[in-house]
């Protein structure tokens, strides 16, 4: 536990020491929120779908967590480049703990950023349907963050440079995000897109967020949670497996 804690703490400290990262991390979701929320909002309302900003907030929170937890993988890559990774790899500690400590730290900072988005949204007029369910939404956000941080740890364990990381983002993370129903309801999309979304784990995280925050769901919360749990377990295993086989 001490090892997991100290590696978690390391990520938290690094996050708060890099002030620019905090602002950078908030800028992008804020842009999405304002540009899409107000840009598309009026058409959305005309189409009889209600308040788009409201619909968008859970998706943007999930987006923030997705991208910042993905960024954690780049930290692993830097740890390898600057040599610190070796220090953890020769320590007499299971690689699962090494992987998990850092990933939980990366996940925590991602959730903090997701919460900042929620606070900004509240300032823009967003109101959750039931305040009591907000903690549940945060728990869901945390599950998503852990899954993505473990996944990005695995990626960071073998990707050698920033370009490689960008490529993974372009080829994997952006599709995961745009094909997830974060930006549009899945009820009215063409069948092929709905099928793609059904195979996309991100859809379930977004759906669960939306269910708890604004009471709208496509898959149903139970199914969302089952999928999320399976993905979390799978990603922890994937990250641990990759870390067992790192050579530095």
């Amino acid at each position: 536990m001490r090892v997991i804690y100290i590696l978690w703490l390391r990520q938290i400290k690094r996050f708060f020491r890099a002030k620019s990262r905090i602002f950078g991390a908030i800028g992008q979701p804020l842009l999405f929120l304002v540009a899409l929320g107000y840009g598309i909002g009026s058409i959305y309302a005309k189409a009889g779908q209600g308040n788009y900003l409201e619909f968008l907030v859970p998706g943007i929170m999930a987006q923030t967590v997705l991208f910042s937890a993905m960024f954690y993988g780049a930290m692993i890559m830097f740890d390898r480049q600057f040599g610190f990774l070796k220090e953890t790899l020769v320590a007499p500690v299971s690689r699962l703990k090494i992987m998990l400590g850092g990933a939980l730290g990366g996940a925590t900072t991602a959730v903090i950023q997701g919460l900042l988005v929620l606070i900004i949204s509240l300032a823009l007029g967003f109101r959750p349907e039931h305040w009591a369910l907000v903690p549940v939404a945060i728990a869901i956000l945390s599950l998503l963050a852990i899954a993505i941080a473990c996944f990005s740890s695995a990626i960071g364990s073998f990707v050698q440079d920033m370009q490689g990381f960008q490529a993974i983002n372009q080829l994997l993370v952006f599709p995961l995000y745009f094909l997830s129903g974060a930006l549009y309801p899945l009820d009215h999309v063409p069948t092929w897109l709905r099928i793609v979304a059904e195979f996309n784990p991100m859809s379930y995280a977004v759906d669960a967020m939306r269910d708890t925050l604004i009471g709208q769901t496509h898959f149903g919360l139970i199914k969302d949670l089952i999928v999320l749990f399976i993905v979390v377990i799978a990603m922890i295993s994937f990250g641990a497996y990759r870390f067992r086989h790192i050579e530095a």
Partner: peptide, 22 residues
């Protein structure tokens, strides 16, 4: 080759090592 965490202080690097080695 270097293997310190350069964002951390000298003391924090030592503390981290102590935790890693129990």
């Amino acid at each position: 080759d270097p293997s310190l965490d350069s964002e951390m202080t000298a003391y924090e690097n030592m503390e981290l090592h102590a935790a890693l080695y129990g």
